[in-house]
Amino acid sequence: MIDDRKSGSGGRYALIALAIAFLALFLMLPLVAVFVEALSKGIAAYGAAIVEPDALAAIRLTLLVVAISVPLNIVFGIAAAWAIAKFDFPGKSLLISFIDLPFSVSPVVAGLIYVLLFGAQGWLGPWLRAHDIEIIFAVPGILLATIFVTFPFVARELIPLMSEQGRDDEEASLSLGASGFQTFWRVTLPNIRWGLLYGVLLCNARAMGEFGAVSVVSGHLRGLTNTMPLHVEILYNEYNFVAAFAVASLLALLALVTLILKSIVEWRFDYHRGSAGH
């Protein structure tokens, strides 16, 4: 902390003011705009937009996608972190790069790859059609696209955390006679719980809010394959701004809750900032 620097406190306050002004303009203002626009025609119009059947269907679909994709991400993330952090094997850094890959792929490309695989013109398209299986323009496609874009979230929180914790605790537990599963449940899981929660929070926010990848595979069928972000887009393109911002405000609330929980994990448990590298 440099409070008594020669550069003087004038420069300090100018820097703080400049940073806050920038963040207020570019981050805070859009967030405020969502709620103000959503309530611009009164609370009744706001409520009506949210309980409208297509909006409710979109909310249900989004919750369904999250309920499937987040647990899968947790299982995969823990398995990948266990294999990578507790064992030595050649090609480890390449494997980590592959796990991170979805972060550097455009969401639109993420959707496209499933169209190329499962779409009517895709490799498996004719076979799927013959067996009456719908993936593209249906819920399974939306699920796959969501799983792709959220792929690294839990794994990349746990890999550094578990690597740093090493394997002493687990080896002690095992040599005292605990089974592998008991060791995982009683020793490893308590050690990684805040990192896991942190990854799940970010994974959940992304799964609920994913737009580009889901947009490519959804087909935008109202009431059927519309997630909340896609429903926002449709309403907006129909110039139904109040309804678009009303549904958007639910997603913005989700973002606020995510940020608050994330901050609590960081402050209370000193996770990520400070203690993660001790």
């Binding site: 940073a19 806050i20 963040l23 981050l27 805070m28 203002l29 859009p30 967030l31 705009a33 969502v34 626009e37 970010l202 926010a205 609920m208 809010g209 994913e210 737009f211 580009g212 909340m228 972000p229 896609l230 926002v232 887009e233 907006y236 701004f241 678009a244 911002f245 958007a248 997603l251 913005a252 989700l254 973002a255 606020l256 995510t258 940020l259 608050i260 994330k262 901050s263």
Partner: peptide, 24 residues
Amino acid sequence: IVNALVDLPFALPTAVAGIALTAI
């Protein structure tokens, strides 16, 4: 609060950011 706000773009769905920025 400023520190938490920095992560808003990670948490706010992109479509929501898009329509909000357009409204501004």
